[in-house]
Every structure is written in structure tokens, then in C-alpha cells.
Design a protein around this nucleic acid. Structure first.
Length: 820
RNA sequence: GCGGCUGUGGUGAAAUCGGUAAACACGCCAGGUUCAGGGCCUGGUGAGCGCAAGCUCUUGGAGGUUCAAGUCCUCUCAGCCGCACCA
């Protein structure tokens, strides 16, 4: 037999040639003209901060395997890639090293592309999107101006989170565990005028539509729901001396008769107006102290409640009781109305506060027939029970009382039913250089003036001086700052803040559909063709930030009729992280494994298959160098059995695998692998292929012939391997005479008639305990199975002469003889 | 505290509909190899008892439902992750 390939498996020899073949054939070149069903496959695009390691590659290998599989299943697969290239790391590197951000970004992109390439991970590179290029960010600016037009972007002075290290403000979502998500510094509060996106306008829809996302992980949906944080309740007005009103929000209006004090946030505008002369000094000191505390103490785990009396009193509109008003920082200015009624008997926080400051604790919910406890040891927050000490409402159940008291408040005009969300508007201004310039101009006469669309993009100057004080270089670039008002032509000043990079990534998946379109951010018809993304794959760390922002963008664009679906991602898969030596693989931890090293030592296919075999893809997994060896052995075995030199040492071991058994195993494997890939269970798909290969080896060693049946098995094995070990699959496919490229071949199908067995192993139980296994013709009836089971010596011994009272029979599986 | 997830051999893990627990792989043990090797091949490998046939136990723990439970129900323990003074 003429050999055109190396006798031993040498990935270095075969892999480059197949990569070239796929590129030439245009594996993921797609068009909107195809009659095949579309499949938009998307992996989260990376920030090009440096070389990739095998931890990153889990995401790309899963995405690549799925894309290749879908091509073979006959889909028109859009499989694009790009770079989330604006952001702080490149800017910080520039400050340190003087290398301009664009230079370092482009260098990192080149490295990453090389790494993806040698791993056999392919994309529709003709649709590559880079967020820091002006043909992309001009449309980010265009969308910003649309948001202004739609009333979804506004400038507002507010106390915002400021990261002193990164010298910029942060969105609420970017405070993780109380610190800056990027650098770990505790943020401070600053009063600044900033740009916001009005994501709160979509709070209810963002929450409601989570129920439409039936192919998203439950945990991500729960995290988003918690973040949106919807609470139903009531606003109640308490009268304050001097004709003022104190509005509170409560989810428990039924406990209004138990309100023994009021608490307002230190930042509440009413504080300075109601505080009495004798209390003013103490209140001012407290407010000063809490401001300092936000930086230092508020984040400590043991955060004891503190507060101070204002000297003022409020009137409970239901009980007409006069209750003291306190200031305390456990009430947040940014949630609800920034004030609460203190009901210590039925709220744990109020209980703690009341206990500390010796305020009265009065239970107003009790159990019928039981006396109300005189002293409570903890707040009773349950909704079980009926009202007591509550005047005309005594005896009502909690939920009834909530309805009736709220209705009464509405009737009297002193309150209303209301819904409050935890979600805050998205602060998008950043006082940093390497980002999309916010396209507005400040004119002394006309105020905030949007840059006209035909003047976009507002280009980010790339010849700037980086400053050691961390200040935005744009502030010191007169050519950028100084401009003229688009309305009156007089000298004006440009906005020097740039946008949060999460704005860039909130619409990139739309740009991929028509990346070179010049009349808008994307061509609606083409976006309608591809959207929504059919499968999105990425890390769990984006559960809230990126995924919530993108959903918001999509809904805003939907309302503007720019897109036809209002959810961007139909299915989401969050893969687990790869750990090594007990820590998540990361450049900073020094435990990363470079793809170049893996490819040089084992070849790309081994690296890919190991990433898939390492464990269930949704869980974290520990990298095991020995495990890689095991996968390498597997691929070597495939090679030796199918492509390599025929093993002349066909030592017959009497394994005795028949041609029928081999064929049946093939069809079982086709069924299993297909099912597993559809269910994202790549680890068991790989193990099924190992089983098939092990059986093929037994077949050959048992003297099995390399006939047409064998060839059929080899050809199908090549196609089953193609999504995982694509290079080896192509070699095997070529060797078995396959037409075209394996990557374009149709996925094999299991034939039902080939799956049938003529003889099956049936388990025999006596009283539910396994006693024997017997070989029976498939499809045999209960009576005959029972007769055969009774012939077993083991069964007879287990029965020990007792009569069988009944039998449970599962065809082709088991028969259970019951004596009780 | 609230919410979500996970507990199965020495290790990573399988078990798709309540029907053979531990597939596949790592590791380990033994043997073989025209074996330099961390290569390749064969066999063994949950625990206990037993010469063996076989028996008993075993999916974090305790109960329960069932002919039959890793899988269903109740309670409980441990770990991981997210949110965390959100009224």
C-alpha cells in the first residue's frame, strides 16, 4: 500500500497543512443567501491584554467545536470574532512604558490571532470587529446620540463611585465586593456631573423577559433578577412639624402601627431642614463621620448600626402617634425614598437599631389565640399571623392588611402602592483617555450640544502625552478640547470623558452581522437575518455586567424599530474556569500554560480534546498534565489503528469482536456523540469515542478484517472526531478516501436497524437484589424470561425454596422475582 | 442573613425515563515487549469476608415512598459561588 503520510502520529507534520486547507476553502465564510438554516455561534470577544493561555482556550475550543459540528449538521454558521480593545490596561501600560495603547493592542491582537490559528480555532475573519477602530466607535458614538435623542442618556450631578487609583468613576455594577472590579481599590464618593444611561426605564422588562430565556443558566437569571431587585410595597407620607412631609417606602405597610421611630439617610435633603437647634451640632458631626466612613469602615463585615436623633418628630398617619426622627447611615439615600419607618418588632435591622438606642419595640403581628410576647429577642419578619395593636385592622391577616392599609392611604391621599427597584441607572462617563469620546460639545450659550451625525466620528487623538498624575491626557490636548459650537460657531469645549468600555461590548454582536456597513451601525435586514445569537458562550464573570447591558441595548434598539428581536442571546452557556495548582489559571499567578508549548509538545488536537475531556464544561476543572498524556495516547491509538502503518504484530488475543458488534458500537457512538454535543457534554462525547476506539483495537487484535465495514467505521470515526480533533480527522478522512474536506462532510447518522441487538443481557433480581445476569434473545416475553431466570443456580439459592409471589419485568433489561 | 449550585473510588468523573453504581481517563499493581525511554500491549484495581463459588456493605448523614432509589419526598450536615443594612 502506498503511503503518503508519516508512519507515526506527528501533529507537527499534519496540522499546518489542514489549517491552510480550511482557510482556502473558507470554512466559516458565510452569506445571507444560503438556504440552510442559520446558526449564529458566538464566543465572548476578549480584551487583547497579552498572550492567551489554556484557561482562555476552553471558551474558544468549545465554541469552535460547536461551530464545526453545526456546519456538518447542515447549518449556515456565522462564527465571528473580534476585540474589546478600549480600556484601562492598555492606557496604564502606556503611562508606565510609553508605548501607545494602539501599538500594544495591535501587538497583542497579532499574538492572539497566531495562538488561535495554531490551535485550529477558526473564525469568519472577514467580519473581525475591533472596538477601538474608528469605523466601529463612530457607530458607538452614533448610538450614544440616539440614546440622547430617545431620552435614554442624560447628564446628571450625583454622588458617584470614584476609584482613586484608576482616577475614574465606576458604575454600580463595577463595584464588586465593595471594591473596584478592576484594581481592587475601595471607591470613594464624589459629587460629579456625569453621563448616565437610563437602564432603570427597562427594569421591569429586563426582569420579566428573563422568563423567556429558557436556554440560559438558572444561576445567571437569578443573579440578574437579584440585581434588578424588584420590591412591591407602598409609599406612606408622615407629617413632620412645620408642614413638611416625610415619605417612606415600605414593603410592610401592615406594620405601620408598629412604627416607633423614623430613620432618614444622612444625605437626605430634609435633614438640614428639620434638625432642631440643640441637635444640629451632633447631627452635623454624624454626617461628617459617615462620609469618612464610606471609605474606611462601612465595608467591614461587622458593621454596627449608628445614628443620631434630629430632635424632630413625625406624625404616624394611621395611629396619630408622635415618633422621633433619627438619622442613620443604614438607610440608603439611593434606595426607595431615602427614609424608612422603623418597625423594630418586625424588621431585624430596625430591631438592632432600637435595641441599641433604647427605642420602643411594639409587636403588631401575632398568632391568634396566643398572647403577644412582652419582650422580643428578635424581630418577627414572617408573613404568618394576624394584626394586633393596630386599631381597626386588628385580626386581619398580613396580606389582607397590606392591601387594606395601602388602599386607605390612597383614599386619604397620604400614600400609594409602588414598586421599587434596586437597579440604578448606568453611569457611563469615564475620566480616562483610551475609550470612545463622548460626542458632545459644551457651548457657553447653548449648553450641551450633541455633535451632529455627519461630523462623526469624534476621533480620539492618538498623539497625546501620558501623565504620571493619572489625569486624562485629553484635558491637556487643546487641539481636541477646543472646538466650536455646532449651533452658533462660537468657541466651545469638547467633552473629555470617554465611555465605559461596556458600552462598546453592548452591541458588537450586531456589528458582526454587517461589519463594513457605512450607513449605520448595522444593516437592519442583515441583523434581522442573523439575530438573535443562537448560542453565546462565555465566562460567568459577565453574568450581570455585560449580559445585562447588552439586553438593555437590544430592548432600546427594538423599541426604536432598529432590530426585530428584543433579546440578543437565545441561549447562553457559561463555561467553568481552568485551575492549576489550586488556583485559576492566570498570567498573574504564573500557572498558565501557553498554547505554543502545548502545540509544540502534543499538537493542537491533543490540547483541544483535553480541554473538552477535562470535565463537565460548566464546572471549574483542575488541569492535570497526566490527563493530557492520556488524551495524547488516545489520539495516537486512533492514528495507529486507522492511518498509520498496519500493525504487523496482530497478536490474536481472542478478544473476538465480531463485525456486527463493531458496527453496532459505531452506531451507538454516533447516537451518543450527537446527543452529547447537542447537550454540551463534550467530556462524555470524547469518552464515547475512546470506547469506540478501544473496541476497534479489540477487533483488530482479535483478527478482524480491514474490510468495507472497517472502512465505514474509520470514515465515520473521522467525522465524529472532526469537531474536536479536526486535523487528525482530516488526515483520517483523506486516508479513507473521503471526498472534499471532512469539515464540510455531513455528520453521520445512526441507523436504527444497526442499533438492534439479537441477544441482550438481562439482570435477574430476587426481592430487588441482583442475583444473576442471563443472556436472552432480544424482545423475549415475561413468561419465558421468568422460566429462564428460574433455571439459574444463583437464583435458586437466593429463593431458598420460597415461592415467587409476583415478578416485575422490564423487557430487555431485568426481571425481579418477588417472594414477599 | 437571602438566593443559587455541588457532595459518588486514591484522583477527574459516568450513570439520557426510578431498572446492572463507578463507563471513560488519570494513578497504582503485575506481566509482556526486536523495551534507551515518561513508548506500546495484556491483565488487575470501591471496601470487607472467603481457597473458591459467592456473600455483605457502599453515591455527605438520618428517615420515608417503591418490587427496585445516586436519581423521587421530608429533615439535616458540609463546601463553593453570587448578593449583601435594598426597608
Amino acid at each position: 500500500m502506498a503511503r503518503t503520510v508519516a508512519p507515526v502520529y506527528d501533529p507537527q507534520l499534519i496540522e499546518p497543512k489542514w489549517r491552510a486547507a480550511w482557510k482556502q476553502a473558507g470554512l466559516f465564510r458565510v452569506s445571507e443567501e444560503s438556504t440552510k438554516p442559520k446558526f449564529y455561534n458566538l464566543v465572548m470577544f476578549p480584551y487583547p491584554s497579552g498572550p492567551l493561555h489554556m484557561g482562555h482556550f476552553r471558551n474558544y475550543v468549545i465554541g469552535d467545536a460547536l461551530a464545526r459540528y453545526k456546519v456538518m449538521r447542515g447549518f449556515n454558521v456565522l462564527n465571528p470574532f473580534g476585540w474589546d480593545a478600549f480600556g484601562l490596561p492598555a492606557e496604564n501600560a502606556a503611562i508606565k512604558s510609553g508605548i501607545p495603547p494602539r501599538v500594544s493592542i495591535e501587538g497583542n491582537i497579532a499574538i492572539s490571532k497566531h495562538e488561535l490559528d495554531i490551535m485550529g480555532v477558526l473564525y469568519a475573519w472577514d467580519r473581525e470587529v475591533t472596538t477601538c477602530n474608528d469605523d466601529y466607535y463612530r457607530w458607538t458614538q452614533w448610538l450614544f446620540l440616539k440614546f440622547v435623542e430617545w431620552g435614554l442618556a442624560y447628564k446628571h450631578k450625583a454622588a458617584v463611585n470614584w476609584c482613586p487609583k484608576d482616577n475614574t468613576v465606576l458604575a454600580n455594577e463595577q463595584i464588586v465586593n465593595g471594591v473596584c472590579w478592576r484594581c481592587g481599590t475601595k471607591p470613594t464618593k464624589k459629587e460629579l456631573e456625569q453621563w448616565f444611561f437610563k437602564i432603570t426605564a427597562y427594569a421591569q422588562r429586563l426582569l420579566d423577559d428573563l422568563s423567556k430565556l429558557d436556554r440560559w443558566p438558572e444561576r445567571v437569571k437569578v443573579m440578574q433578577a437579584n440585581w434588578i431587585g424588584r420590591s412591591e410595597g407602598a409609599e406612606l407620607d408622615f407629617a413632620v412639624e412645620g408642614d413638611r412631609q416625610l415619605k417612606v417606602f415600605t414593603t410592610r405597610p401592615d406594620t405601620v402601627f408598629g412604627a416607633t421611630f423614623m430613620v432618614i439617610a444622612p444625605e437626605h435633603e430634609l435633614v438640614s431642614r428639620i434638625v432642631t437647634a440643640e441637635q444640629r451640632a451632633g447631627v452635623d458631626a454624624y454626617i461628617e463621620r459617615t462620609k469618612a466612613e464610606t471609605e474606611i469602615e462601612r465595608l467591614s463585615t461587622e458593621h454596627e448600626k449608628t445614628g443620631v436623633f434630629t430632635g424632630a418628630y413625625a406624625l404616624n398617619p394611621f395611629s396619630n402617634e408622635r415618633v422621633p426622627i433619627w438619622v442613620a447611615d443604614y438607610v440608603l439615600a439611593t434606595y426607595g425614598t431615602g427614609a424608612i419607618m422603623g418597625v423594630p418588632a418586625h424588621d431585624a435591622r430596625d430591631f438592632e437599631f432600637a435595641t441599641k438606642y433604647r427605642l420602643p419595640i411594639r409587636p403588631v403581628i401575632g398568632t391568634p389565640g396566643e398572647p403577644v410576647a412582652r419582650t422580643l429577642t428578635a424581630a418577627v419578619e414572617s408573613h404568618d399571623g394576624v394584626l394586633t395593636n393596630s386599631g381597626p385592622y386588628d385580626g386581619l391577616a398580613v396580606n389582607q392588611a397590606i392591601d387594606q392599609i395601602t388602599a386607605e392611604a390612597e383614599r386619604r391621599g397620604i400614600g400609594k402602592r409602588t414598586i421599587t427597584f434596586r437597579l440604578r441607572d448606568w453611569l457611563i462617563s469615564r475620566q480616562r483617555y483610551w475609550g470612545v469620546p463622548i460626542p458632545v460639545i459644551y457651548c457657553p450659550d447653548h449648553g450641551i450640544v450633541p455633535v451632529p451625525q455627519d461630523q462623526l466620528p469624534v476621533r480620539l487623538p492618538e498623539q497625546v502625552e501620558f501623565r504620571s498624575d493619572g489625569q486624562n491626557p485629553l484635558l491637556h490636548t487643546p487641539a481636541f478640547v477646543n472646538t466650536t459650537c455646532p449651533q452658533c460657531g462660537k468657541p466651545a469645549r469638547r467633552e473629555t470623558d470617554t465611555m465605559d468600555t461596556f458600552v462598546d461590548s453592548s452591541w458588537y454582536f450586531l456589528r458582526y452581522t454587517s461589519p463594513h456597513y457605512e450607513q449605520g451601525p448595522f444593516d437592519k435586514a442583515i441583523a434581522d437575518f442573523w439575530m438573535p445569537v443562537d448560542q453565546y458562550i462565555g465566562g460567568i464573570e459577565h453574568a450581570i455586567l455585560h449580559l445585562l447591558y447588552s439586553r438593555f441595548f437590544m430592548k432600546a434598539l427594538f423599541d426604536a424599530k432598529m432590530v426585530s428581536v428584543d433579546e440578543p442571546f437565545a441561549a447562553l452557556f457559561s463555561q467553568g474556569m481552568i485551575q492549576r495548582n489550586g488556583a485559576v489559571m492566570a498570567k498573574s499567578k504564573g500557572n498558565g500554560i501557553a498554547p505554543d508549548d502545548m502545540v509544540a509538545r502534543y499538537g493542537a488536537d491533543t490540547a483541544r480534546v483535553y480541554e473538552l475531556f477535562i470535565g463537565p464544561p460548566e464546572f471549574d476543572a483542575e488541569w492535570n498534565d497526566r490527563g493530557v498524556d492520556g488524551v495524547a495516547r488516545f489520539l495516537n491509538r486512533v492514528w495507529r489503528l486507522t492511518v498509520g502503518e498496519e500493525d504487523d504484530a496482530t497478536a490474536t488475543t481472542g478478544a473476538g469482536v465480531t463485525r456486527e458488534a463493531l458496527t453496532r458500537k459505531l452506531h451507538e457512538t454516533i447516537e451518543k456523540v450527537t446527543h452529547d454535543v447537542d447537550a454540551f457534554r463534550f467530556n462524555t462525547a470524547v469518552s464515547a469515542l475512546m470506547e469506540l476506539t478501544n473496541l476497534m483495537q479489540d477487533y483488530i487484535q482479535g483478527g478482524g478484517a480491514r474490510d468495507e465495514a472497517w472502512e465505514r467505521v474509520c470514515g465515520d470515526l473521522a467525522r465524529l472526531l472532526a469537531p474536536f480533533a479536526p486535523h487528525l480527522a482530516e488526515e483520517l478522512w483523506a486516508r479513507t478516501g473521503g471526498a472534499s474536506l471532512c469539515a464540510f462532510s455531513p455528520w453521520p447518522e445512526a441507523a436504527a436497524d444497526q442499533l438492534q441487538r439479537s441477544v441482550v443481557t438481562v439482570v435477574v433480581q430476587v426481592d430487588g437484589r441482583l442475583r444473576d445476569r442471563i443472556e436472552l434473545p432480544a424482545g423475549i416475553g415475561e413468561a419465558e424470561a421468568r422460566a429462564r431466570a428460574l433455571q439459574s443456580a444463583n437464583v435458586a439459592r437466593a429463593l431458598d425454596g420460597r415461592p415467587v409471589t409476583r415478578a416485575v419485568f422490564v423487557v430487555d433489561r431485568l426481571i425481579n422475582l418477588v417472594t414477599r
